[in-house]
Design a protein around this nucleic acid. Structure first.
Length: 274
DNA sequence: TTCCAGGTGGACA
DNA sequence: TGTCCACATGGA
């Protein structure tokens, strides 16, 4: 166990509820259990921006500091939005204050967002967890077991029945297609970290079952291209209702993805799920 | 029970 | 190029 103080925006509940991560589980203490690559972290908010983490300082510095994107100044990103110029976005920033764009594993993000299409968030979490339990490596920690996210070869080796049992529905063949493209080298996710947005979207939409929306989510949440701007049903509503004359994307470069996340969270909080 | 969900591929005009 | 529809499942 260690404690750290985080002075910038950082709200666990809001990140967990922001629709970018599907393997955060709330525990009895009000904290979260997070699985990222081959690590499990328990994290809990104390007071005055202090957080308790179940890892060593070394692991925190090597893994979690980066995962939580703690080098980025999210307050400064929020402050670029002026209430008088864009009252809706200013409202959304305030509402979603504390959200950060996690630096998640691109492969896991790709499969998770393929699974996400045309489903609500609880159903996505359920399928992702079933997939991990079915095909992921089992780990033990303090008598508590958890499963890693399965790699492309492992998913490729799963039977159709086993995949279907993860309740993927018609997305089974998309998940297999993505696994094949990565395993056989047609899609190099690591290379895309440094690719242009145009090239990234083109490469990702080359996978059967990946359209512009899923590709944008992978770009934003898996490759950390923070200007990527996924448009789902919620963002479409926002653009129609709040920006009938057009959304000023140019103005908000290079942080469109972060603002998109504030808007998604705020609108969904206000008009969606109870 | 009904509607809808962090959509996409494919058919058709 | 644009529009329409099926798709599989479960949460609310």
């Amino acid at each position: 166990m260690m404690e750290i103080q985080i002075l910038d925006d950082f709200n666990l509940d809001r990140i967990a509820d922001s629709g970018q991560c599907f393997r955060w589980t709330k525990d009895d203490s009000g904290g979260y259990r997070i699985i990222h690559k081959d690590k499990l972290l328990r994290i809990r908010s104390l007071e005055n921006g202090i957080f308790a983490l179940s890892c060593t300082e070394d692991e925190y510095l090597r893994i979690w500091h980066d995962y939580f994107d703690l080098e980025e100044d999210y307050r400064a990103v929020r402050r670029r939005v002026k209430q008088e110029e864009d009252p809706f976005l200013a409202w959304a920033c305030e509402r979603g204050k504390g959200i950060r764009i996690l630096r998640q594993d691109p492969w896991e993000t790709l499969i998770s967002f393929i699974i996400s299409q045309n489903r609500n968030i609880p159903a996505i979490k359920r399928s992702v967890e079933l997939l991990c339990e079915s095909a992921g490596q089992r780990r033990e920690e303090n008598g508590c077991s958890y499963f890693l996210f399965p790699g492309p070869e492992k998913i490729l080796s799963m039977s159709d029945e086993a995949l279907a049992a993860c309740r993927l529905g018609y997305r089974c063949r998309y998940v297999k297609a993505a696994a094949a493209d990565v395993a056989e080298g047609r899609l190099d996710l690591e290379r895309l970290r440094y690719a242009s947005e145009e090239e990234t979207i083109e490469a990702l939409t080359g996978v059967c079952g990946v359209g512009i929306k899923v590709a944008s989510c992978v770009s934003l949440f898996g490759l950390h291209h923070v200007d990527a701007f996924p448009v789902d049903v919620w963002i479409r509503r926002i653009l129609e209702n709040e920006y009938p004359d057009g959304y000023p994307k140019e103005k908000y470069k290079p942080y469109n993805g972060i603002y998109q996340q504030y808007m998604f969270y705020g609108y969904r909080e206000k008009y969606g799920r109870k």
